[in-house]
């Protein structure tokens, strides 16, 4: 039976009719039209569904929507600020870190959460932060370039 739940997504509160078994990624995509988070493996092994829950990356394919009540949810659609793209988004564009794009929202959110917690990560920390996000196109080189670029841009904005 569906019931109304209140989800706070990208700073906006939404009343959503959801069954207790509805998975967060499906509610975001189908009820709220936020199709940035992708359905991939459905089992937490690819990271395409990554969203931020209270600032931390989480696999939205393994979280019931009802479990996210009371949390701050950020999807890729909510990452950009008033002044434009998030620095990680901009860095992905500049580094050419996108090919088919299916993994990109998850990659960008995982990287943004990393830089929020650790603005100047070393190489090992970057790789660790992205280790739950699979990309089958790029070979990761440009993605790592982008994250390094976003970090160095934050350090030296010129």
């Amino acid at each position: 039976m569906k019931q109304l739940i209140e989800l706070k997504v990208n700073g906006q509160t939404h009343d959503v009719a959801a069954r207790p078994t509805d998975i967060l990624v499906d509610v975001l995509r189908e009820a709220l039209g936020l199709t940035g988070a992708k359905r991939g493996c459905g089992l937490g092994a690819c990271g395409a569904c990554t969203v931020l829950i209270d600032g931390r990356p989480v696999n939205s394919c393994l979280m019931l929507a009802v479990e996210a009540v009371g949390c701050e949810i950020v999807t890729i659609e909510g990452l950009r600020g008033a002044s434009g793209l998030h620095p990680v988004q901009q860095a992905f564009i500049e580094a050419g870190a996108v090919q088919c794009g299916y993994c990109t929202p998850g990659m960008v959110l995982a990287a943004a959460a990393l830089l929020e917690e650790c603005p100047q990560p070393d190489e090992a920390r970057i790789r660790e932060a992205l280790s739950g996000n699979v990309c089958r196109c790029t070979g990761y080189v440009k993605i790592l370039d982008a994250v390094r670029g976003a970090a160095s841009r934050a350090k030296d904005p010129a």
Binding site: M1, R19, P20, T21, I23, R39, G40, C41, G42, L43, G44, A45, C61, L62
Partner: peptide, 22 residues
């Protein structure tokens, strides 16, 4: 869920959750 350790990747992500689950 992790996928190995005596458990290969599930071939699809078809969701079989019981809709009437409390």
């Amino acid at each position: 869920m992790q996928v190995k350790a005596g458990g290969g990747p599930a071939a699809d992500s078809e969701c079989l959750m019981e809709p009437a689950l409390e």
